[in-house]
Structure formats: structure tokens, C-alpha cells
């Protein structure tokens, strides 16, 4: 199967997963399910450390920090959770060049990425689990494009990769809510802890079909040059090609706190790693983020 066919298959599967939870189907839900339907808007910000290597241009690892902003939406019924989101990340990294007592090289690179995802989770083993534990499995379609800039690489100074991943997803959620108020007697004063709805969850996404767009053999190519009408994008991407290889994994360890009105917030540690062999030389990137998310109950 050619990479192009795989790409079409991935898009078809992502569309199929998405349509399976479309509003048309939602309308057929029984009334009590409909009453349990919840829609959240979840904007988030993250602070991240990340590192990457692009072995086509350098044998070194680049380590840096950055931040991201994301807009996420969550539709939840007792039978499924549907997440949709976009994420914009920007950061700066420096090369881990060995220390020199003479002149220290200090190359740096900026990294910008844009991601879009569509994730669906379904509850499993519900009758067999204790009340405080919920397990979900499902799938995720994730697409991320990385733009990198490193002036010291001159004509190879702009790097671009695009990743398309169809992933297997899972999530374990533990209900750590305080169901009843209790009072702590500290002799001089008392502190009353009110009931709170809160959860800890651990989620993962593991790529099962991983596609990537990477540069050509020589990284930079002169393709058809149509004078002043030559598109800069064609110069940048003209000789990139799709490959079906590598891996991608995400994990998320998350604390969620809901208020009585359904709003709330989340703190999470998020890990995202991708290994992208492409056709010729590897690219790899990992991001470790501390993420704060507001939960705005829309319905």
C-alpha cells in the first residue's frame, strides 16, 4: 500500500470515527442519556521543555523551552467522550554542543508547531470496576506540523515536518472527590473541608498508523523554478515526501476539579514524543508540558 493510499485510509478512518459520534446519531440517544450530555469548552495554556534532533542537518540534540495555547472542546455522554482541539506551540532551543575552552559554538533554533486532533473514548468494563474507577478506550487522529528555523544552517535553515497519526487511546480515571464535609480540629481553630468533585486520570495515545512528511535526500532541492512566480512554499516543500514509519506516543497525567455549576479547571503533565525516520534521516522530538486548562460548561 502506497503512502498516499495510507493517507486516504487514515483520513477515511478519522472521518468514520468522527461521524459515528455526529449530532445525527446523538439525536437517537434515549432521553435520560440526552439529559446527561455535557459540553465543555476547555482553553488551555502550557509551559514546556522540549528537545529534538534532526539528523539530516546535525548530529546534536537541541534542548529548549516554550509555551503553547490551545482551544479544546469536549462532548460527553455516558456512552462516549469526544474531544476536538487545536494547539499552537512556540519555543526556542539551543544545541548541546560540547563545551570548548577556546570558542564555544552556540547555535540555536526556534520551533513552532500547529496541531489538530479529534479523539473519541468509550467506557469499558463498567460493571466489573469499583465505583471510583472508570476506564475508557478509543482512538485519536492527531496531525502536527513543525516549522523550525536555524540561521546557522543557511539554506537548510528552515525545517518542516508534518506528522499524521492514527492512535489507540486509553484513559483510567480515579474519582477522588470528597463526598461529605469533614472538620479538622486544630485545637485553636477548626477547618471545615467542603465536598469537592475531583478526579485523577492517566491517559495515553499510541500511534498505530504513523505517517510523516520529511525532506528529500539532500534536504534542499531546486525543483522547477518558474521565475518570479515561483511559490516560496514549493521551494520549501517541493521535494518533501510522505513515509509510513516511526512512532508517536502521548501521555497525560491530569488532576481535574469541577465546581457545582459544571465549570472547573485541570492541571496536567503532558508528554508527547515522536520518532520520525522519514525516507532518509531521522527527526525526533519530545515535549514535556505542565498544562493548565479552564473548563467552561456550555451545556
Amino acid at each position: 500500500m502506497t503512502p498516499k493510499k495510507i493517507l486516504y485510509l487514515m483520513l477515511f478512518m478519522a472521518a468514520a470515527i468522527h461521524l459515528s459520534t455526529s449530532p445525527i446519531q446523538a439525536q437517537t440517544e434515549i432521553p435520560n442519556q440526552k439529559a446527561n450530555k455535557k459540553v465543555d469548552f476547555q482553553p488551555s495554556v502550557s509551559a514546556s521543555i522540549f528537545h529534538f534532533s534532526d539528523f539530516a542537518t546535525s548530529p546534536l540534540n537541541y534542548l529548549g523551552f516554550g509555551g503553547s495555547g490551545a482551544a479544546n472542546w469536549k462532548w460527553q455522554t455516558p456512552k462516549r467522550q469526544h474531544f476536538l482541539g487545536i494547539d499552537f506551540f512556540s519555543g526556542m532551543a539551543v544545541a548541546n554542543a560540547p563545551l570548548s575552552s577556546y570558542f564555544q559554538p552556540n547555535n540555536s533554533s526556534t520551533v513552532t508547531s500547529f496541531s489538530i486532533y479529534d479523539k473519541h473514548l468509550f467506557p469499558i468494563l463498567k460493571p466489573k470496576l469499583p465505583d471510583f474507577l472508570r476506564l475508557h478506550v478509543g482512538g485519536k487522529f492527531l496531525s502536527t506540523s513543525y516549522f523550525r528555523s536555524n540561521n546557522s544552517f543557511q539554506n537548510n535553515g528552515t525545517g518542516f515536518e508534518s506528522l499524521l497519526n492514527l492512535m489507540l487511546s486509553g484513559k483510567a480515571t480515579v474519582d477522588i472527590s470528597r463526598k461529605e464535609a469533614w472538620t479538622l480540629d486544630l485545637f485553636l481553630f477548626e477547618k471545615t473541608f467542603k465536598p469537592k468533585e475531583r478526579y485523577l486520570s492517566f491517559g495515553f495515545d499510541a500511534g498505530i498508523i504513523n505517517m510523516n512528511l520529511r525532506p528529500s535526500y539532500s534536504y534542499l532541492s531546486m525543483l522547477e523554478f518558474n521565475g518570479s512566480e515561483t511559490s516560496p512554499i514549493s521551494l520549501l516543500l517541493g521535494d518533501h515526501s510522505w513515509s509510513l514509519n516511526g512512532w508517536r506516543m502521548n501521555t497525560c497525567f491530569e488532576y481535574t476539579r469541577y465546581r457545582k455549576n459544571g465549570n472547573g479547571y485541570k492541571w496536567a503533565y503532558v508528554w508527547d514524543a515522536a520518532y520520525v525516520p522519514g525516507k532518509f534521516e531521522n527527526f525526533q522530538i519530545a515535549t514535556h508540558s505542565l498544562r493548565y486548562t479552564l473548563i467552561v460548561n456550555l451545556k
Binding site: A56, T57, A95, S100, P105, F153, Q154, N155, G157
Partner: peptide, 19 residues
């Protein structure tokens, strides 16, 4: 030839023609 650009293990840079 159009030159590329890259980096050595010690952090120095290089370029040479690839087209």
C-alpha cells in the same frame, strides 16, 4: 550549485553544493 548547511558534532557549521 545551491549550497546546503549543517552542523558538526563539535557545533561548527559547514555548507557545500548539493545541486
Amino acid at each position: 550549485g545551491l549550497p546546503n548547511g549543517g552542523e558538526l558534532p563539535n557545533g561548527w557549521n559547514y555548507r557545500f553544493s548539493i545541486t
